[in-house]
Design a protein around this nucleic acid. Structure first.
Lengths: 337, 337
DNA sequence: CTGTTAGCGCGTTCAG
DNA sequence: CTGAACGCGCTAACAG
């Protein structure tokens, strides 16, 4: 209760306590180039700031400047997973280093006009938006509000700066690995909704690479449930001849699920069938057999995102090389393949 | 490119286009009690809003009102998991229904003065803060900035409204279940850092309830690695006599890990040893044996959080019953225990 | 070189 | 339904 509930010290309070003008307070706190303040007054001001617990009002600053230092991102529509978590963490750091602050918006459904409008109201410096949320009206509203829009992934129907997300690269790398290891009969798990937007392209990539090598790929539609894998697994147990020697499981969770199903059928991993996933799901490193997997390091992506936002704000051209390089996937070889 | 990049329509633009004053625009958009606007002008204004893609400037509103409609919460310091994700999702909905918007701050480390200061700058209506981040200076800064502070969990050294988080309730419920099922020799997994703040109290709760029933509890210190469980599991395999008949695994991830370790040692779950976790980790419902588990529904907690924030903002007294009721854990019986 | 005065940005709301 | 003042920090123009 030291300083009551509604004190809200303003720069005027600081100025009064320090015996200077509000302008001086501002100059001390923002240290613009052209203006100098004597050591003595600077100290007085900073002391006053401390005694009053003064925190400048971001709303006033934003109002004056036309935009704030906030980078707004809706929470991903996919369920939050450790990799996404890592990306957010890195992104926050990278943005902070560039004078920006990351704020996550809780509303994921916010594709609708209402959601985007609420973004626009906050007058963020920039908005990071999933490609599929980049509708023309959304972009118009946001840029109209003075925000820089950066799409994550290539948007379908709008011209707007975007970071080309290669969410299929992990599948390609995994497939190449399997091929290199000499596997000549593959299978690929293809989860249904809501994962179709990712699972279909990944399957296509696996099938494409395999076809180039003259290797057949068995498609296994499934969902997050062992039972959905049983038919395929039962087939595989039946004929050692025709079963795949390796499976790309779409991601680590499904890889775990598949291993479970294979174990239930008496098939050994990787002895009878090798399994590889994607995503560096923590449990995959810990359950046995530990998972061989591919993923794109969260730090790389985050750095590219932050750097691109900064460039956009500064009116600099995009660095396409940096963006592409950030999408390089990484292979982690463990026990399962 | 319809409306250029930096248009930023203001309420004055809307007023001009609609042929009315800015005051009228404001009244139309906020529909205060005392003021009526004719149907005709209202329509003109709304039409203008639409043609201009006008979104009111939250910064200006916040500046005028002294605080915004934003509820700020740092991302939890624990890694984002599906339960936390669910909580965030629910919280966003519940707050939205109460006229508030949830913003997650990316900076988790933000215990330091700098982090809190950056919260204060945003002039949020309220801040949700982990109990352990509620230092006196943090609270002073925040309330000084006009924000309502709600601690999640009981803070050590500050008097501030808080939501009593019963993170041990899940352990008690699990233990009661095991006892009810007739288990008379228990074990409890106790993960080390960084989980100690949760794992120790849970162990204490398990031990306490078991002691009341005259049941011994074997403590198993461990971490997220099968190897750390091998010594205990090896002991248990050796003597069927003295091994526990059931284990409280701290949470579902550790339960999965334990099942893995037990399987490696040839022990059956739940035949030889029953295993119960906490947290409703999705993979636990899907891997075999499926996990019996306890958790506190995310929706309940979120509702209590939102409702409490709203009461605080409205100056109403806290509803302690509602808060306590929200902490009721739920048991999900599946195969593992 | 150091510090001050004054007006702006935009939505809200009281008095007309 | 309108005019005008207000909230707070920034910065161009200006005075010692």
């Amino acid at each position: 209760m030291t300083s009551g509930s509604g004190s809200r010290p303003t720069s005027a309070d600081v100025a009064r306590l320090a015996g200077v003008s509000r302008a001086t307070v501002s100059y001390v706190l923002n240290g613009k180039d052209g203006h100098r303040v004597s050591e003595a007054t600077r100290d007085k001001v900073l002391a006053a700031v401390r005694t009053l617990d003064y925190a400048p009002n971001a709303a006033a600053r934003t109002l004056r400047a036309g935009h704030g230092d906030v980078v707004l991102m809706p929470l991903p529509s996919l369920p939050l997973s450790p990799p996404i978590d890592a990306n957010i963490q890195h992104l926050d750091r990278e943005l902070a280093e560039r004078g920006l602050r990351l704020l996550l918006h809780g509303d994921r459904s916010g594709a609708g006009a209402a959601g985007v409008r609420s973004f626009a109201e906050l007058r963020p410096a920039a908005v990071l938006l999933d490609a599929h949320r980049c509708t023309p009206s959304a972009v118009r509203l946001l840029t109209g509000a003075g925000a820089v829009v950066l799409a994550i992934g290539k948007p379908r129907s709008v011209r707007v700066p975007y970071l080309p997300m290669d969410s299929v690269a992990v599948a390609r790398l995994a497939t190449r690995y399997l091929l290199d290891r000499g596997h000549r009969r593959l299978a690929c798990l293809v989860p249904g909704p809501p994962l179709v937007p990712l699972s279909e392209p990944r399957f296509a990539a696996v099938a494409g690479l395999a076809a180039d090598a003259g290797v057949p790929v068995e498609r296994v539609d499934c969902h997050m449930d062992v039972d959905s894998l049983r038919p395929a697994v039962a087939r595989w147990r039946g004929s050692a001849r025709r079963r795949p020697t390796a499976v790309y499981a779409y991601n680590d969770e499904f890889a775990l699920l598949l291993i479970e199903a294979l174990r239930g059928a008496g098939l050994r991993v990787p002895g009878d069938i090798a399994v590889i996933g994607s995503g560096s799901f923590p449990m995959g490193a810990v359950l046995r057999p530990t998972l061989t997997t591919t993923h794109i390091p969260a730090g790389q992506i985050a750095r590219a995102q932050a750097s691109t936002v900064r460039r956009l704000l500064d009116g600099e051209p995009l660095n396409h090389e940096e963006m592409a390089a950030a999408m390089q996937p990484v292979l982690t070889v463990r026990e399962s393949a």
